[in-house]
Amino acid sequence: MRPWKLCGVAVVVALAATACGDGAGGGADQGAPERGGAGFPVRVTDCQGAATTFATAPRKIVTSNAAALEMLLRLGAGDRVIGTGFPPGKGTLPADLEAKARKVPVLSKSVIPKEKLLGSGADLYIDSFAAMKTMGGAGDAPTAEEFGAAGIKHLQLASTACAPMAKKPQRDLSGVERDIKRLGAVTGTSERADALVAGMRAKLGTVHKAVGGLAPAKRPTYFFFDYDAGTKQPVAVCRKQVANAVIGQAGARNVFEDCDGDFKPVSWEDVVAKNPDWIQLAVRNRGGAKANAKAFDEAAAFLKGFPATKGLAAVRNEKFLRIGSERTTIAGVGNADAVEEIAHTLHPARFKAAR
């Protein structure tokens, strides 16, 4: 799933509006949304400074994809979702959330067509990206005027929508945390949002104690191999993508942190030149453990058989991590789980010593 290179949502700070130019997750504190008594009104702005005010919590929400839907389900606001695009694949969510997700009408398996979105009856559209034009086949994204005429407020997830144009890299998960808290404020579920963020921070805190003090030279290098993006030309995760933060928080160095933006096509020669210590076999969930294992095996087999990569030490020694793409590149509480898994795999001795 490819985010667009446009701005998303930034939260209004009490004294100054923070645009996404200061990072979707690069550590800049965007603060909490402005709000009045009893939690409302809540006011948020997009990266251009255009404000949206919520006098009350929305009742009919449409989500652009599985990431926004999952956040709402975890916040306890899933019963207000009346439709989604890019629905979660079978097995991508915990069993309790998946059962609830299956009840949400699928408006499109990809980008929701403009006419269907505007006619959905929603009062809020939560967009993980900043535009819909480049996904193909769904027409142009609605304009602000069209959203207004349909009575739909438009809110984006800043950690993905703002990322490509942010001035700073994503090196921590603060952008993801802000997205969760922002949705909590808008939907009136702030207490639940705080609990979700606290759970993430607890996991990250344990990891940080074990590997946070590692100097850059002591951190193993790491290549995120997006197998489903195609093997003819690899696609790197760059410094402004959420995955860069996941990798860094786990005590590793993204071999393509030097590339600007969020994603970038590279060459296999580039990968070989980086000579990564570890390679994540990133595949998208196939809907079950058996199918996922098969996909991971296929990704490993490709690297072992491909002339350009079979000689890499990481490939010869099978320094592979089998972690799904979704938990690494799509914003959500699963990012903290991915940090934990990567860190324990790369630095087992440090966690044993901490016990």
Rank of each mutant, 00 (worst) to 15 (best):
A130H: 10
A236P: 02
V283G: 04
M200L: 09
R182E: 09
K240V: 11
I126S: 06
H154K: 14
L69I: 02
R355T: 07
K168W: 12
Y227F: 06
I152D: 02
F224S: 05
G49W: 01
E326P: 01
A343V: 09
D297T: 04
T53S: 13
D194G: 12
A150R: 02
G334F: 11
T189V: 03
D262F: 08
W268I: 15
T329F: 02
S120L: 04
A282T: 03
G37H: 09
G23L: 05
R239D: 01
V176M: 15
F296C: 14
G261M: 08
E298W: 00
R43I: 05
S110D: 00
A202R: 12
P94H: 05
E191R: 02
W278A: 06
S128A: 09
P113D: 03
A185Q: 13
E298L: 00
Q233A: 00
A300L: 03
P164E: 10
S110I: 03
V81W: 05
E257P: 01
P33S: 03
A289V: 14
P220F: 11
P276A: 13
G151V: 05
G91R: 02
A215T: 00
G26K: 07
N335A: 04
W4R: 11
R192W: 08
D228F: 10
S159Y: 07
Q170E: 13
A24E: 11
L204I: 12
A336V: 10
A163D: 05
A343F: 15
L303C: 14
A141Q: 08
V62E: 04
E146Y: 06
D194V: 12
S110G: 00
A349P: 03
I279K: 04
Q48Y: 14
T143G: 10
R316Y: 12
A50N: 07
A77Y: 05
G85W: 15
P58K: 15
G148N: 13
D29E: 06
L157K: 06
T53Y: 14
Q241S: 15
P307K: 15
T92E: 10
A166T: 07
T328H: 13
A138S: 10
S120H: 08
E318W: 02
L118V: 05
F296I: 08
D337N: 06
I342G: 15
G136P: 05
Y125M: 06
G78E: 00
G121D: 13
G85L: 12
S159G: 01
E177C: 05
V62C: 04
A300C: 08
I82V: 10
R327W: 15
S159H: 06
P216Y: 10
L6A: 12
K232M: 01
K203D: 14
F54M: 09
R59E: 15
D179K: 03
Q249D: 13
Y222A: 06
G136E: 14
G311F: 01
A291F: 00
F225A: 00
R286K: 00
A215M: 00
A131Q: 04
I152L: 00
H347F: 05
L321E: 01
